[in-house]
């Protein structure tokens, strides 16, 4: 990170592991679980959140001194809603099938706790460049978890990655299927998303014992 100072690069790198929005800050869980049955949906959702959080953080940071404190939630909601409408329309125009898979969860980016959480915790008190980096960092952290969950769910659930059959053809029994391997269809259903995230948390906290809770 040659062009960013140490503190700035911390803003991007921290949320990737130690201050991960999903596993540590416990924000943004809803969409992380619901749409990760396909890796492609996870990637598109991460990019959408990157756009909304990055730009949103900058906008809120720029107007932070003019927002009256009583209505700041409404102002934040308006900014996010406007950005999400843009994302939704772009998705509907350029990736219609995917927008159908994501269905209401694109709209739910508005209430994605990461976005409101970072607005309140960071953008309202810091300058635009730092807020932009914080937004990028947190959405990358969010995206990392989404992609890991999406990767395992799609690979083990349908034997494909991004739509490409990587384990062989299940109908013609080539590749791994020839020795009797079957897709674990259960991975595509909602409960497994929860359990996969639980396992990710397990792994993360085993490696970093400072994150362990008391009970």
């Amino acid at each position: 990170m040659g062009l960013l100072s140490k503190k700035d690069s911390k803003l991007i790198l921290d949320p990737l592991a130690d201050n991960n929005p999903i596993t540590i800050q416990v924000l943004g869980i809803c969409s992380a679980l619901a749409i990760t049955a396909e890796l492609k949906a996870s990637i598109v959702m991460s990019i959408s959140v990157l756009f909304v959080l990055g730009l949103g953080n900058v906008v809120i940071s720029l107007i932070r001194n003019i927002i009256p404190s009583k209505i700041r939630i409404i102002v934040q909601l308006t900014v996010v809603a406007a950005l999400v409408i843009i994302v939704d329309l772009v998705l509907k125009a350029f990736a219609y099938e995917l927008s159908k898979t994501l269905s209401v969860f694109v709209g739910l980016i508005i209430t994605n706790c990461i976005i409101m959480g970072r607005f309140e915790a960071f953008a309202l008190g810091n300058g635009p460049w730092k807020s932009f980096l914080d937004g990028i960092g947190n959405s990358l952290g969010y995206g990392v978890i989404l992609i890991i969950v999406g990767f395992f769910r799609e690979l083990l659930g349908s034997g494909t990655l991004l739509g490409y059959k990587v384990l062989g053809d299940p109908i013609e029994k080539t590749g791994v299927y020839a020795i009797g391997y079957e897709n674990n269809g259960f991975m595509l259903l909602s409960p497994m998303a929860l359990i996969v995230v639980g396992i990710i948390i397990w792994v993360q906290r085993s490696r970093n014992s400072a994150l362990i809770e008391d009970h």
Binding site: T23, V26, L189, S190, P191, M192, A193, L194, I195, V197, G198, I199, I201, W202, V203, Q204, R205, S206, S209, I212, E213, D214, H215
Partner: peptide, 24 residues
């Protein structure tokens, strides 16, 4: 006796997953 790294958040996720299976 929940394993230390699973305490709190991790075990809640897994339990919720099991409850989701039940609700299925």
């Amino acid at each position: 006796n929940v394993p230390a790294p699973l305490r709190g958040l991790g075990i809640t996720f897994i339990i919720t997953g099991l409850m989701a299976i039940g609700f299925m």
